[in-house]
Amino acid sequence: MKKYFKLFILLAVLLSTTSAFAQNISDMRLNEVVVTNTEGFEDDYGYRSGWIELFNTSYGTVNIAGCYLTDDPNNLTKYMIPKGDVLTQIKPRQHILFWADGIKEKGTFHLNFTLDGVKEILFVSADGRTIVDKVVLPQLDTNQSYARKVDGEGTNKQESFVYQSINKSMKAKANIDDPSVEGWVVCANPTPSTNNITLDGVSKGAQLKEVDPYGLFLTISAMLVTFLSLIILYFIFKRIGKFHIQKKSANAKEATKTVANRDKADTSGQVSAETYAAISMAMHLYKIDNEAHDFENTILTIHKESKSYSPWSSKIYTLRETPQVNKRK
């Protein structure tokens, strides 16, 4: 009963975790916010309003349908992101923009509140309780945005529970006692639906070519790593092999000792328990199950064994003559 109870508790914990973090909602981040927008980006209707940008930090698609955006910590379910819109599936490392125009009838990405005078914004998971991300806004001028320097990175003084406790790598960065906000900046030029920081576009390969044009350093490093991997494996299996040999010889010694003792017992005229057991079993099989018989029918049945057939392994099937180069005489 105790075992089943433990199992039930485990399942309950798993289910609650699953519902809270289904589809990796915890990978979503509030990424950039514009409170007053008079000259910047326009929505599909040609109007300007404040906006909130979310960013999917993961390398998998996240569906944010059913989650909430709010500006009120006492009302975490202020705006529910509608379900049934394919656009709420945020692709890996992609952004999504919500217009804070207070007219939710305009569509999925139009909030039912505006950002005038708003102090903080919260992104809440579908359970309506778990705060996934939260940002406390500073005083912003018109057309300025408050954004993460690098998309999805950086910490806020009041990062959510999820952010601090679930994502361990992020936890290392987060300093709860530190009042300063790390990784957030006020931007004069907002970057809606694009990266907050534009990388220089130089690929790893191009960078490598600059520092190692002949590939020598990469070759040396790579060979070292390859050797290191296999050397460690060599040492481990050398030890395991030695252990196995020692164990085998110990077992052999033990077996020799047992046989010697048994022989000794036989010479003393006593019959061992194993012998009695074997005789009893033979009699039982003969009498009850008719398993033992004195006559063998001498019919030999050969089962055909299927052979795995592939060029990579099959030594039999791939054994063939070595191709020879014919030399003209």
Binding site: G215, L230, L233
Partner: peptide, 19 residues
């Protein structure tokens, strides 16, 4: 297991061709 090291050495073909 020391034969593992031969498998490592032969990978120089990869990096030689890379250069």
């Amino acid at each position: 297991p020391k034969l593992l090291l031969i498998g490592a050495a032969a990978q120089f073909g990869i990096f030689g061709a890379y250069m």
